[in-house]
C-alpha cells in the first residue's frame, strides 16, 4: 500500500517534470495544441468515472459541466479580466454546486432516467447561455489571451502544463477514492442501493460526494478551454460530443480501476486527433460511435476487464 503510493507520486512527478521540460524545449506549437486536447480528455474521463464508473450513475451531462466551465472563464475574463487560476477555481466551485444539484436528482431517478435527465440539463443550460447577451449569445465571443506568465513564454504551452496539473489532480483524487472506504461504498451502492443502505452505507451522502467531486473537476477542466480556443460559442462548448466521447473513453478503458479512463482517453483521444488531422472530423465521430458500440457489445468491462480476463485465464491454465 505504502509502496504503491510512493510509486504513484513519483510517477506523477516524473510526468509533470517531463511536461514542463517539453514546454521549455519544444519550439513547435502543434504538439501542444494536439496534446492539450488529449490531456483534457484524460482529465474529463477520469473525473467522469468518479460518478459514472464508481457509482454507476451514467452522466450524459459532461458537456453541461464542461460548457459551464468554459463560460465561467469567458464571463470572468470579460467582466474582470480575472487570471487563469481564478477562472479555474471559480469554475470548480460552480461545478461543485451543479454537482450537488445533480446529486439531489439521484434521489428521484435512477438508471436511464437519470441519464436522460442529465441530457435535459445540458440543453437547458446551453439554451440559457445562448440567450445571455453579455457572453456573446448564440453567435459566440472572441477572447483575447493575456501575455503568458513566466517561465512560460507562450500561452498554449502554459495551458498545456495547467491541463497536465489538472490531470494529476483528477487522477490522484480518483485513485484515493477507489482505494478508500468511499470507493467501497460507491461500489456497494452501484451494485445494489438498498442492500448498501442496509449494510450501513450512507448512499445519499456518498452519491452527493461523488457528484460534487466529479462536477467540480469537470467544470474546472473546461475553464482553460476558453483561453485555448480564444473563442467560445454555446454550440461547441456544450456539444454532446464531449459527453459521448468522455463516456466512450471511460467505458473503453474500463471503469473498475482508476487507470481505465486514462487508457481509454489516450487510445481514443490520440486516434481522434490523428483522424481529425489526416482525414476529417466526421470520420473521427464515426470512429467514436463504432468504438463505443464495439466495446459496449464485445468488452463491457473495457480494456481493464479484457486484461484481467487474460491474466485470470493464464493463471487457471498454469495451475
Amino acid at each position: 500500500m505504502k509502496r504503491s503510493n510512493i510509486a504513484f507520486w513519483v510517477g506523477a512527478a516524473v510526468f509533470l517534470v517531463a511536461i514542463f521540460v517539453m514546454t521549455q524545449v519544444v519550439g513547435n506549437q502543434y504538439p501542444f495544441f494536439a496534446g492539450y486536447v488529449i490531456l483534457q480528455f484524460i482529465a474529463l474521463a477520469v473525473a467522469w468515472s468518479i460518478l459514472g464508473g464508481y457509482a454507476g450513475y451514467v452522466n450524459f451531462g459532461t458537456s453541461a459541466f464542461f460548457g459551464v466551465g468554459v463560460y465561467t472563464a469567458v464571463f470572468l475574463t470579460k467582466a474582470f479580466e480575472a487570471p487563469l487560476l481564478v477562472q479555474i477555481v471559480t469554475a470548480a466551485v460552480i461545478g461543485a454546486l451543479m454537482g450537488f444539484a445533480l446529486g439531489l436528482l439521484t434521489l428521484r431517478m435512477q438508471g436511464i432516467f437519470f441519464s436522460i435527465a442529465t441530457i435535459a440539463l445540458t440543453i437547458i443550460i446551453e439554451t440559457t447561455v445562448m440567450n445571455w447577451r453579455f457572453v456573446g449569445g448564440a453567435a459566440g465571443i472572441q477572447i483575447a489571451r493575456p501575455p503568458a506568465t513566466p517561465p512560460f513564454d507562450n500561452y498554449v504551452q502554459m495551458l498545456f502544463f495547467v491541463q497536465a496539473l489538472l490531470v494529476v489532480l483528477a487522477v490522484a483524487i480518483s485513485r484515493y477514492i477507489q482505494n478508500s472506504w468511499i470507493g467501497r461504498g460507491l461500489q456497494a451502492l452501484k451494485d445494489d442501493e438498498l442492500a448498501a443502505e442496509c449494510t450501513g452505507v450512507p448512499t445519499l451522502r456518498l452519491k452527493l460526494l461523488a457528484c460534487v467531486i466529479s462536477g467540480a473537476l469537470l467544470c474546472a477542466i473546461g475553464a482553460p478551454s476558453a483561453m485555448y480556443l480564444q473563442f467560445a460559442n454555446p454550440d461547441s462548448a456544450f456539444n454532446l460530443n464531449y459527453s459521448v466521447s468522455t463516456l466512450a473513453m471511460s467505458l473503453i478503458g474500463g471503469t473498475s480501476h482508476w487507470s481505465g479512463p486514462i487508457i481509454g482517453a489516450i487510445l481514443l483521444g490520440t486516434t481522434q486527433q490523428l483522424l481529425t488531422v489526416t482525414i476529417s472530423s466526421e470520420v473521427n465521430v464515426l470512429v467514436l460511435g463504432i468504438m463505443l458500440v464495439l466495446f459496449v457489445v464485445g468488452a463491457p468491462e473495457g480494456i481493464i476487464g479484457l486484461v484481467r480476463k487474460l491474466r485470470g485465464n493464464r493463471k487457471e491454465g498454469g495451475t
Partner: peptide
C-alpha cells in the same frame, strides 16, 4: 445503462 451508451453510439 450500457444499452443507452450503445444506442448513443448507434445514433452517432
Amino acid at each position: 445503462v450500457r444499452g443507452i451508451a450503445f444506442f448513443f453510439g448507434v445514433a452517432f
